[in-house]
Design a protein around this nucleic acid. Structure first.
Lengths: 117, 117
DNA sequence: TGCTCAATTGCGAAAATCTGCAACTCTGCA
DNA sequence: TGCAGAGTTGCAGATTTTCGCAATTGAGCA
């Protein structure tokens, strides 16, 4: 019962990261990393209008990163896999290091600039 | 000597993932996860024309994910941080789980479709 | 039944991204 | 000095994403 992926792995990975590459979607995933949230709860946190949030949630659903559960008239979202939280954590670590590197680069640039070259 | 990030963290994260969200850039990062590579080495592996590869490398450089070192007339690229390799590994794991989930979903859809609904 | 609120969907315009072509820089070598 | 190869950059057209507005569904309630 294998899963014939059809698309090459690197394409799938690229699409995967592409869905993560959006401010609203990142905020949503961070909220869901803490605990389940309803749309109404997320709305003020991410600060976009309902239609927009709904669109981004749809993207996350299509990719299979989140699941939704309907209770009455409100919809609750949760991470499909807790590993997503781990991924965000690793990203944060890398981002820290990378930013530091860019700061050094910037410092170097300023230094050489002052030297007149 | 702190680093005043200027942009909110979630924006930086989104940009970070956005740079990962491209087939050629993913392939490059995977190659560099193994070892340093020259442009000439990567060229046949990723299968795009030189100008295109160069552009994607420029994107990775701007984001600070890779560094380049010039030896004679050839340019060698390497990962800035080995944690990037870790990130790709985690992504692979998640992707496995997510795809499995989507396969089940698909199976469900097919099943209900056969039921006539 | 009619109304309201939560959430989603459809659609079109604006913005960002991608990619190939042409031109350019730089190193090494005859 | 002049040429060839490695790699990069600039630019323009084509494609993809994004986002707000309007309309729709669906549950709960007077």
């Amino acid at each position: 019962m294998s899963t014939p992926t059809r698309q090459p792995l690197y394409l799938l990975k690229a699409e995967f990261f592409k869905t993560l590459g959006h401010p609203v979607r990142i905020r949503v995933l961070e909220l869901l990393s803490q605990r389940e949230h309803s749309v109404a709860e997320m709305l003020p946190q991410v600060g976009v209008e309902p239609a927009n949030l709904s669109q981004q949630l749809a993207v996350l659903r299509r990719t299979g990163l989140v699941t939704n559960r309907k209770t009455g008239s409100t919809v609750h979202y949760a991470l499909t896999s807790p590993e997503v939280a781990e991924l965000l954590a690793v990203a944060r670590r890398i981002l820290g290091g990378v930013l530091e590197g860019q700061a050094e680069l910037l410092a170097d640039l300023n230094a050489t600039a002052k030297d007149g070259e």
